[in-house]
Write a protein that binds this DNA or RNA. Structure first.
Lengths: 265, 265
DNA sequence: CAGTGGTCTAGACCACACT
DNA sequence: GTGTGGTCTAGACCACTGC
């Protein structure tokens, strides 16, 4: 593919120049951070797609006119943020949600006995999928304007026959134009993998706000629990590159056979 | 303090020797990982106490007979695990729970509006503190034998007059001999800071299992909520060095004015 | 000013994967 | 063997802190 000449600018010289700018805020940024931003832009622009191999450290070092060690430090940080995966002897790959390794990367719900693999794949049932104008709270979470088009999706996930997760998903109408219940139902694999392959939207991080709530009539019926049963309410905002929110998800989890697992350090 | 002569062994040579051992499992370990383990042992042995300055990278490099870069990489990982804190121009310090910066490092409960600093310090009330023989489940979590001595502590945390957290804490009787309700009540600052300064036990990581439950009569009274109110049940196991469990904590959180915040990546 | 951690480079060698 | 990422070294210089 064509590379813009500006990509070949001497970054090291630019860094020195920036640091030489005497001001109240020198805005000094290490070379490897600048390289990291450049790689990030290429990822974002789709120069290398999820699952693909990115150029070797030596190639990138030549392209950016810096040493291999500097590129290495930039990639180290990208790997720490799960944006790329390194494989010794093979190369560095763009991270993807469509891997066997981490089936549900953002799902923290675990069965009480046994691990996540012991219960087989989740049974998915799509309850509803419709287009609507965003209410104020949904719009705010997705950085849209009230009334903008959004997709709303409701589904139930069951494990070994027991409905366990009920979730509503809101997506901005623009990037996800053409998403239908059929395409979702036909797709094998995580929803985020479909987002990548079909809509070019890659989720890189998320925030969850968790509460305990009582099941209302509608939720109780879908999850097959008594009305008033305590459920875990998990509100997730998922972001793509540049901290751009691209999904709001409100889930209700049954925690009689499963629990939400979190590691602190 | 006295340094065992073995500390001055040529680590680099040892690494080469280890890698030269031809076997089914060469058990190759990078030099910097070995250095990391050595530093970890010094931390664990209390050679440098929480809050203290550890030797400079150059000093450690000389002590272990490796280059500064190798020590740097070892310390980088320790810093990433929050075991030490680096400060440019000053040095590297042993991490501690007794810092202004991160008041409650393991507490993920946030007020719905405003940040954690906007509501002032928590009001703490100790309900109970007693010695008992560990039931089977508690013993298992703390890697003790059933019937071993443990301390049980119950307390309520209130924010702005509203009781919000009710928690039971179990601690192994041996390491925490001498802990009383009075010492806890008198102490200003996080409980984990007291554990460090008074008992030399430093918590480095924790796991939490979260569920939604209904308030029973006793919990409802202490948290001033109706019986049956949905509450967040947070079971935390906290570990000191070497993955040794040193605390089991079962908390009930009110989530009408607060929420549990989690970041996923 | 000296001492600390932080960045950058260049080169050598090692472990791993593919061919 | 060739090419990849991973380790280790040595030296230079930069940014920050406190004397």
């Amino acid at each position: 593919m064509a590379i813009a000449p500006s990509s070949f600018t001497d970054i090291a010289a630019a860094a020195s120049a920036a640091s030489a700018l005497a001001g109240a805020t020198p805005a000094f940024s290490p070379l490897y951070q600048q390289i990291k931003v450049l790689i990030l832009k290429s990822l974002q622009a789709g120069e290398w797609k999820p699952g693909e191999l990115i150029p070797s450290e030596m190639d990138l070092a030549a392209r950016f006119r810096v040493s291999q060690g500097t590129v290495r430090k930039a990639i180290d940080e990208l790997a720490a943020e799960n944006l790329v995966m390194r494989h010794q002897g093979k190369g560095t790959f763009v991270a993807t949600h469509a891997e066997q390794q981490v089936q549900y990367r953002f799902l923290r719900l675990m069965p009480d006995n046994g691990d996540i693999n012991s219960e087989g794949p989740a049974e998915r049932q799509i309850i509803d999928c419709k287009r609507l104008r965003a209410p104020a709270d949904i719009a705010r979470s997705l950085a849209l304007r009230t009334g903008d088009a959004v997709l709303q999706l409701r589904r139930v996930l069951a494990f070994q026959g027991t409905p366990t997760i009920l979730e509503d998903v809101w997506l901005p109408g623009g990037p996800f134009k053409g998403l239908t219940a059929e395409r979702l139902a036909d797709y094998r694999g995580p929803m985020y993998a479909l987002f990548e392959t079909e809509f070019g939207v890659r989720m890189v991080r998320a925030e969850e706000n968790i509460r305990a709530v009582a099941a209302d009539a509608a939720s109780a019926e879908l999850l097959k629990v008594p009305v008033g049963e305590p459920l875990l309410s998990v509100e997730r905002t998922a972001y793509t590159y540049n901290d751009l929110p691209m999904e709001l998800r409100r889930g209700l989890y049954r925690t009689d056979t499963h629990h939400y697992k979190n590691e602190l350090s």
